[in-house]
């Protein structure tokens, strides 16, 4: 009796050409110039980043670009202790939701240069950019965010303001 076959490996490879979409394209072009562009919803007036061309809350297209600060408030976070497949970020690292000043939605990014026991919601942070010559059409032009020496922001209040906007 021969060994049972329990698994075969079938390597499959498919190539895709991704399309960013009109709104994302403008966002990425902005990053190339060191600018973070959001879009203002014509209806609720709130600012979305990164915008995908629509305000999902109002169900309308967004076209009005708004340049945002590279400082913001970290509202929540996790400390990732395991490696991410395909990523060269070494654990443990902090992945966080950051409300950039002028934006009404959180952006997901890394927070570094802070001791892990000092991480707390409401912390003020600022983008740490790569050297300008390394900038591409990518959010990775911002290596990560670093703490800013400013008083903490009340996250509950921040959330309430946007929810009721």
């Amino acid at each position: 009796m021969s060994e049972p076959i329990t698994q075969i490996v079938t390597p499959t490879s498919l190539d895709y050409t991704f399309t960013a979409g009109g709104a994302t394209e403008r966002f990425l072009r902005g990053l190339k110039d060191g600018k973070i562009l959001g879009q203002r919803c014509p209806k609720c007036q709130l600012v979305i980043v990164p915008a995908r061309g629509a305000c999902a809350r109002c169900g309308v297209p967004t076209e009005d670009d708004v340049e945002l600060a590279d400082t913001g408030t970290m509202t929540t976070y996790t400390i990732v202790h395991i490696p991410v497949p395909g990523s060269d970020v070494k654990p443990p690292f902090v992945a966080a939701t950051i409300f950039l000043d002028g934006a009404d939605i959180g952006l997901f990014h890394l927070v570094h240069e802070v001791s892990l026991d000092k991480i707390r919601p409401g912390m003020r942070v600022k983008a740490s950019w790569k050297p300008q010559e390394d900038w591409g059409f990518s959010l990775t032009n911002i290596r990560y965010f670093v703490p800013l020496d400013e008083p903490d922001v009340d996250v509950t209040e921040l959330e309430r303001r946007i929810a009721h906007a």
Binding site: L28, T76, G86, S87, A95, H109
Partner: peptide, 15 residues
Amino acid sequence: FSPHINAGAGGYFAP
């Protein structure tokens, strides 16, 4: 087009 920091479902839901 997105920074590669999303460590699966756990990384998404932990925050």
